[in-house]
């Protein structure tokens, strides 16, 4: 019995908790991608670097606050800096829309031209981020680090295995829930939110109804900026900030958005968790876990890791491929890309 409990704790500690936090981060990222797709109808390759940009501003403001001794202990100072990061990112995205995308909307360019220019934007943003903060790892988490420490957990329960829950993980989940509720309230209940859904559903009819496309597009970018900055900052708090990592997050985020059904916000959230859980469960080494569960003579001597962590991108990719092959509309029937 204790063996089973220990196995469960182990699993919770290394799979359940981290994957939930990671899933929430991906979900927030995928929501941004899916919204932009729903309204502007292209896959925004710059989203990963938008996350990096927003996080960078948040980090810089965090450092400034820290240098002035401003803090909201036990919570990380970054939360206080987050609104500034969002504001800067909103400015950035509205500027790119004005300078890059608006023109192509006007001439009704092919979707692929949008995708291509988003790749251009991605590299410019990437350059800006590296230029300002450098390409290296940055840590900016402060405040209390743990809600439950493994040692305390062991002492309290008397189990052999410990459970760790980091503040960043709990914060991620809490903030993600709040953001998602706010977003759905906005989309379902407000006039502007409904007009966005209407625009995404049927652009011509929306125009006929007097819905202003430029206004809808602007609000979409504002929301995308907020989502990207929040997702990026939470990811950075939970792990660390490195521009290249954020670029690489693009693949799992796309996978999440497409698995759930692109253009469908509910799908983006489900997709985020599907991708995160697949990634973590497939790259987790089950050796110790099985040792608790199996009789002694069956204990494995290898790591029992389905796939090495270096291949976590392959997991997103395989999920993506399976969706494309089996059900291109995704779980929740989004638009067919």
């Amino acid at each position: 019995m204790t063996d089973i409990l220990n196995a469960l704790i182990l699993f919770a500690n290394f799979v359940l908790v981290p994957a939930t936090a990671y899933g929430a981060q991906l979900a927030l990222g995928a929501l941004g991608v899916t919204l932009v797709f729903g309204i502007l109808r292209f896959s925004n390759f710059a989203h990963g670097d938008t996350m990096a940009f927003g996080t960078m501003v948040t980090i810089l403001v965090t450092w400034w606050f820290q240098s002035m001794g401003v803090s909201i202990h036990p919570l990380p100072t970054a939360l206080l800096a987050l609104p500034f990061g969002i504001l800067a990112t909103v400015g950035m995205l509205l500027a790119t829309d004005r300078l890059v995308y608006r023109f192509y909307r006007k001439v009704k360019a092919a979707p692929i031209v949008f995708v291509m220019s988003s790749v251009g934007v991605m590299f410019v943003m990437n350059g800006i981020v590296r230029f300002i903060i450098g390409p290296d790892d940055q840590r900016f988490a402060d405040g209390e680090r743990f809600i439950i420490k493994a040692r305390d957990f062991k002492a309290a329960t008397g189990m052999a295995e410990g459970l760790t829950i980091k503040v960043s993980q709990a914060l991620t989940l809490g903030i993600a829930v709040i953001v998602v509720i706010a977003l759905f309230w906005f989309l379902q209940r407000t006039r502007t939110g409904k007009s966005m859904r209407a625009f995404s559903d049927n652009e011509d009819l929306a125009l006929l109804s007097g819905i202003s496309p430029e206004r809808v597009v602007m609000i979409t970018w504002i929301i995308a900026a907020a989502l990207a900055t929040i997702a990026g900052t939470l990811y950075g708090l939970d792990k660390s900030f490195k521009p290249f990592t954020y670029f690489q997050l693009l693949l799992p985020i796309f996978a999440a958005a497409i698995v759930g059904g692109i253009g469908n916000p509910l799908g983006a959230i489900a997709g985020g968790f599907v991708v995160a859980f697949s990634e973590v469960t497939i790259t987790y080494a089950y050796k110790k876990f099985l040792r608790y569960l199996l009789p002694e003579n069956l204990e494995p001597d290898s790591l029992v890791q389905l796939l090495s962590t270096d291949y976590k991108f392959a997991v997103s990719f395989v999920i993506l491929v399976m969706v494309l092959l089996i059900r291109p509309t995704g779980i929740f029937k989004g638009k067919v890309l």
């Binding site: 292209f42 092919a110 979707p111 995708v115 796309f254 291949y311 991108f313 990719f317 494309l324 890309l337």
Partner: peptide, 28 residues
């Protein structure tokens, strides 16, 4: 085989993915 015939964005995403994976394989 997988990505062509669907919307053009998919090829872009799929090629991005396969290139990351190829590099990961070669590194590991």
């Amino acid at each position: 085989k997988i990505a062509l015939g669907l919307r053009s964005d998919y090829l872009a995403i799929a090629t991005l993915g396969i290139s990351e994976i190829i590099i990961a394989v070669l590194k590991n």
